[in-house]
Amino acid sequence: MATLAHSTDNYTNTANTSWLATYKNYVAKAEFNRFGWAVSALAIQGCILSPALLLIMSNFGGGDWQFLVSMLCFLLVLVPILSAFPVKYIFPTFATSLVLHLLMIAIDLL
């Protein structure tokens, strides 16, 4: 007969639960789905963020510097993807681009 109780040897308590350790663990697990993350980042950047900023710039008036920053942010996301860098480089570049786009959209709307 099989036992009903399982041992708890698989549970480990580590004191290293900082946000950086959590991020590194998440990135290590996300590396398996690198293609999906790369496509998602590029689709959000190219199909949502950049067109939304350009539409808001044309309606509310934006400077040339905003267009330049938008294109540089697009390249900031595109270069690590085309260079086949690991996910640990794609996540921060996309986050930087997302924050800059949202900041420029807020500047135009306000």
Rank of each mutant, 00 (worst) to 15 (best):
1 M>L: 12
1 M>C: 15
3 T>V: 10
5 A>P: 04
5 A>H: 15
6 H>E: 09
6 H>V: 12
7 S>R: 14
8 T>E: 05
10 N>L: 11
11 Y>M: 13
13 N>K: 12
15 A>T: 15
17 T>A: 07
17 T>H: 00
18 S>V: 00
19 W>R: 14
20 L>C: 09
20 L>Y: 12
25 N>H: 09
26 Y>L: 09
28 A>C: 04
28 A>I: 04
29 K>L: 05
29 K>T: 10
31 E>Q: 07
31 E>R: 04
33 N>C: 12
33 N>I: 10
34 R>D: 03
35 F>T: 15
36 G>D: 08
36 G>C: 09
37 W>I: 14
38 A>Q: 00
39 V>A: 07
40 S>R: 09
42 L>I: 13
44 I>T: 13
44 I>R: 04
46 G>F: 02
48 I>F: 07
48 I>R: 09
51 P>F: 01
52 A>L: 15
52 A>N: 15
53 L>A: 03
58 S>A: 11
58 S>L: 07
59 N>G: 06
63 G>D: 11
63 G>P: 04
66 Q>M: 13
67 F>L: 12
71 M>I: 06
71 M>P: 01
75 L>Y: 11
76 L>S: 14
77 V>A: 02
78 L>H: 00
78 L>Q: 01
78 L>V: 03
80 P>N: 00
83 S>Y: 09
85 F>Y: 14
86 P>M: 05
86 P>W: 03
88 K>N: 01
90 I>P: 00
93 T>Y: 02
94 F>T: 03
99 V>F: 04
101 H>Q: 05
101 H>N: 06
101 H>T: 09
103 L>Q: 10
103 L>T: 14
104 M>S: 05
104 M>L: 11
104 M>Q: 02
109 L>C: 06
109 L>H: 03
109 L>G: 08
110 L>W: 12
